[in-house]
Every structure is written in C-alpha cells, then in structure tokens.
Amino acid sequence: MMKEIYITDYNCVTPLGFDVESNWNALLEGKSGVALHKIIDNHEDFYVSKIDSKKLEIEFKRFFDFAQNDNFTRLEKMFLLSLKPLVERHPISDETAFILSTTKGNISLLKNQTILPEGVFLSRLAQKIADFFGFKTKPIVVSNACVSGVMAIAVAKNMIQAGKYKDAFVVAGDEISEFVISGFNSFQAIGTEICKPYDKNRDGINIGEASAAVYITSKPNQNEKFRFKILGDSAINDANHISGPSRTGDGLFASIKNAMTEAQVSAEQIDFISAHGTATIYNDEMEAIAFNRMELQHVPLNSLKAYYGHCLGASGLLESIISMESSLKNTLIPSKNFKETGTSQPLNIIKENQPAEIKYILKTASGFGGCNAAIVLEKC
C-alpha cells in the first residue's frame, strides 16, 4: 500500500493580502486585485494584478529585520514572506525536500544588462532561498509553464511516496515583468478589462503576480489544524501547439482521468473543480470539452483569474490553497465576472458565494507547450 501524503499547512502573498485569512476575506467580498498599471514605458496601461511594492517592503522589513534586506530581489522577498510562517511551524530535517515552482523567476534582472546575472538562473534562485532557511537537501525546481504550481505538489507527493524524502516545503511564485507582458501582448492574448473566464464576452487574460507555499508530509502530527490528502495526480502533454491548447482537450482529459483513477474517485464524488480558466477563447473552450468528456459538467466550478490574474508558476499552488480554504470554510467562491456561457459545452459555473460540503477537490491547470496537469485532494 502506498504512503498517504498530506498537505497540512499553507500560506500566500498576493495583491489581496499577505496571508490566507486576508485573501479569503477579500474573496468573500468579491474584491479583485486586477487594475490598470503602467508596465511598459511609452505604452498603454495593462490590466494586471500587482502587489503594492511599498506594502511588500514594509511587510518584509517587519518579518526580516536585518541589514541585508537589499540583497534580495522583489520576487525573492515574496518567496521568503510566503515560506517563513511554514518554516517556523515545521522543523527542517536532513530528509526534508525544498521544491520551488516558477516560470520566469528573476527575469526582471535581465533588463538593461549586457552580462547574464547569476540570479537569473532558476537553480541559483532556488539555492538562495533554500540557504536562507537552512534546507539541507539540494533544491528541486519545477518550471513547466503554467502547470508548474500543480506539478510541484505532484512532485512532492511522488518523491515522498518513493521514500526519497519524509516531508517537503513547496513554494511557487512569479512577478509581473515587462518581458512577460510583452510576450502575451504579442499573442494579442491580453484582455481589455478585468477578465471574464468562461463568459461569452471574454476577450483575454490578465497577468498577475503572487507567491504561495505549502507543507507536505506523510506523517502529520496531532496539532495540525487541517489535513488534505493528495489522492492522485497526473501531467500529460497534448503535443498540440507551442501556445494553443488542443481543440479536443486530449491532454487535460487524460490528466484528469489518470488523477481520478489513482485517487479512486468517480465524477459523482467530485464536489468542486478549481479550473484554470484564463478567459482566453481557446483555453476555456478546451477545458469545457475536457470536463464534459469526463462527465464533470455538473460539478460546481470556478476560475480565480478575475481576482488574481494569471500568476503563472504561482497560479496552480495559490488556487489549490484557496480551494482547500473553501473546503474548510464550506463555501464556494463565484467565478467573478461570469454572466453568460461562452463555451460550446455546458459547465456548472459558480455565480455567487454559496454554502457547500466540499470533501473531494479537483484542481487542474494547462499551459504553453501543450502541458496539462491535475490533482485530486480529499479533506480528512
């Protein structure tokens, strides 16, 4: 029998707050972190979800009172803030894994540089964070486009089950950068307003930034406030296109099917789907097809992108955390800005805050390069 693996602690740093409680309260009130910001000089403003830099500095100096504050980039400070409470509550041993999820890391360091800075390498970024907290094992980097956050949970689960580690800290993060905004803008994929996942009038994505962290273990202690068992996981590449999703949803369908098979959970048992929902025409359509192929069209579903924007490597982990908080609070959060179905296949989009018993959660993600991932969580 395989070891049972649990998520027993988490934290996040986002434009809506610097801990889970403040984020949850903001979501209950329907607040969005998405607003117009100047990202590229001599260019129109973009709707993005951006952490206030002054607040970030104040919070960082409050928790990290030492002279070397300026030795960390803005993204690194986000990582440190999200991880600190978890590290304080759970001891690090010689058998503790440290896993960092990101798509672009310190990409902003490249601006106006002629020589490649050391900090731009993801391995160096991960080692710097690991060294700060005193991790004894070599850091693991998960960087697979926008499924990175979900895959990082799966990597931790599988490595602990294989006996490589006893427990793991997973941290995920990305920041708003001119590089990323320019890239998505070149695809004409950025929305002209706060995004509308699955809605008939959706017109594109909002980019966001955040960091999030979870603690994963096979041996939860009796003092844990909660436990979520990671029942199943899968990641499948549909090999369809460098940036376009499969029109038939093959990769996402296979990922969900594999994860649910491992979890031994049927479509009727899934209580809630935390979907990717980028509000681009093709992504939302692909997801609707995949969910219907799995006979999950009846399951309450939301996307958090209109609250947080698309936080790239952080999105899957952040949205998993909010899903678990929904389960603990027995409350479904609406998919903000959804009014009229804009997909060819039906979905049960959540339209308002509503009470619900949530035991089994399906979390999905999809990204550039044809990558797709899914995990199934169970509240214990």
Rank of each mutant, 00 (worst) to 15 (best):
I273T: 09
D52Y: 11
N23D: 11
P245I: 10
A254M: 04
F79V: 07
T278N: 11
P139H: 10
G119T: 01
M1V: 15
F135Y: 12
A213S: 14
D271K: 14
R124H: 14
K329Y: 00
A290S: 15
N112M: 07
S82Y: 00
K164Y: 05
I375E: 13
D94K: 09
D250S: 09
H241N: 11
K104I: 01
G370D: 02
E193M: 07
S182R: 14
S326C: 06
A67D: 14
E175C: 09
I350G: 07
A168R: 03
M260L: 05
A374M: 04
V299T: 13
V120M: 04
K219A: 11
Q354E: 12
I205Y: 06
S186R: 13
T14I: 07
L252K: 08
I289D: 11
S218F: 00
I58L: 13
P85T: 11
G208I: 07
M1A: 15
C311S: 10
G316T: 03
G316R: 05
P355L: 13
G183D: 09
L125K: 08
A259E: 05
H276R: 07
S148R: 09
G119C: 08
L27N: 14
L328T: 03
P117C: 05
K77C: 01
T73V: 02
E325M: 02
R124P: 00
K219Y: 06
V34E: 10
Q188F: 01
A130P: 05
L16N: 11
E287G: 10
D41T: 15
D233V: 01
V150K: 11
N42V: 10
A275C: 09
S186Y: 03
Q222R: 06
L377H: 14
F135L: 12
S274P: 06
N42P: 03
I322A: 04
A239E: 04
P300M: 12
V48L: 10
M1N: 15
L27T: 14
H310I: 01
S320V: 00
N240F: 02
G244S: 13
Y282L: 15
K3C: 06
G313R: 02
I160E: 11
V141G: 15
